[in-house]
């Protein structure tokens, strides 16, 4: 897991729900790559095509609220986003993101300070720097860090099962 990086931000508001991240009508498409072009389409149909690998999406409070669809974080990872920064995250989305190795960072003040197109510098577990100002990040829980460092829950379980057979 990359712990220090910079990225260009796309700024969204509060309560970005999973139906906005990926509407139900696209969930039965065969692969995550097929679904990715429709990310955020009810809100901003062009956005998925504009996002470049390494970009960061910034949201307000309760990012990822709504359904349990795990395609939501998988699609955001597929688009190449290096992190999502928000004031707070909905709980199922949080777990799903961790399990798929998508980095989520919480800070209450940064989302109101950034403008779309700005660049921010992230140090995981420590801070996000924007416009010369540092916004602190809380350290991560050990079990969450362990899954992220394995590259997601599938890899963590593969490791467990291989160890069990040995």
């Amino acid at each position: 897991m990359q712990t220090e990086f910079s990225g260009r931000v796309w700024v969204l508001g509060d309560d970005i729900d999973t139906d906005i991240i990926i509407p139900t009508e696209y969930l039965a498409l065969p692969t995550i790559a097929d679904m990715a072009p429709y990310a955020f389409s009810p809100l901003r149909p062009q956005l998925a095509g504009q996002i470049q690998p390494g970009d960061i999406v910034v949201g307000g409070k309760n990012f990822g609220c709504g359904s349990s669809r795990e395609q939501a974080p998988e699609i955001l990872k597929e688009l190449g986003l290096s992190a999502i920064i928000a004031k707070s995250f909905a709980r199922i989305f949080f777990r799903n993101a961790v399990n798929n190795g998508l980095l989520l960072l919480e800070n209450a003040d940064l989302p109101d300070a950034v403008t779309e197109g700005d660049t921010v510098a992230v140090t995981v577990g420590k801070q996000v720097v924007h416009g010369g100002k540092a916004y602190p990040l809380a350290p991560m829980a050990d079990n969450v860090l362990e899954i992220l460092e394995s590259g997601g829950l599938v890899a963590a379980m593969q490791k467990r099962n291989k160890a069990g057979q040995a």
């Binding site: 349990s68 795990e70 199922i92 399990n99």
Partner: peptide, 8 residues
């Protein structure tokens, strides 16, 4: 509710 990876 949980995601499908956790269910697996």
């Amino acid at each position: 509710g949980i995601g499908y990876t956790e269910m697996a």
